[in-house]
């Protein structure tokens, strides 16, 4: 793997599957890494633990769910944006929470976007397609 388009932090398997399905079907991202908790996300990004041996490359975009095990998405966001290595990587929050408090906190920390996961599949597809803004042109699907 010479590049990582997107790192997805999502503990819910169906949501992860749906997200990846939409991203791939829309041709927005091919090389997607999926981690299931905050600690794993940190390990992956900073090549620690089981990811210590992985290739030294960083994802182009990081998509976080907030309510994830071990380390919350918001904590991961804080760590990433306060670290020199990762502070320039765009981070988008993709959450089921429609609470303004969550939204405000994420924007305050420096998230590029906060997307509430809708319930209907069509609305979900539309929402996920917004991620395209943060992915490199070369990977944009040609419609």
């Amino acid at each position: 793997m010479s590049k990582i388009d997107l790192l997805l932090l999502e503990d819910n398997a169906t949501d992860a599957e749906l997200t990846i399905k939409v991203l791939r079907s829309q041709g927005m991202a091919k090389d997607i890494v999926h981690v299931k908790d905050g600690a794993e996300a940190i390990d992956f990004i900073f090549r620690k633990g089981k990811y210590a041996e992985r290739e030294n490359i960083l994802p182009e975009l990081i998509v976080l769910d907030l309510k994830v095990p071990k380390i919350f998405g918001i904590e991961v966001l804080e760590i990433l944006l306060s670290n020199e290595l990762t502070k320039n990587i765009p981070v988008v929050v993709l959450s089921s929470s429609s609470l303004d408090s969550d939204k405000d906190a994420c924007y305050k920390l420096g998230a590029k976007a906060y997307i509430v996961k809708p319930i209907g599949f069509d609305a979900f597809t539309e929402a996920i397609s917004q991620l395209g803004h943060y992915l490199s042109q070369g990977d944009q699907p040609t419609e």
């Binding site: 169906t14 949501d15 749906l18 309510k67 089921s96 209907g120």
Partner: peptide
């Protein structure tokens, strides 16, 4: 929070997979 977050997820799964 649970209502907002966790209850929506299964609903989304139901809706999405039905679609």
């Amino acid at each position: 929070y649970s209502v907002a977050h966790d209850m929506r997820t299964p609903l989304r799964a139901i809706s999405a997979f039905a679609t």
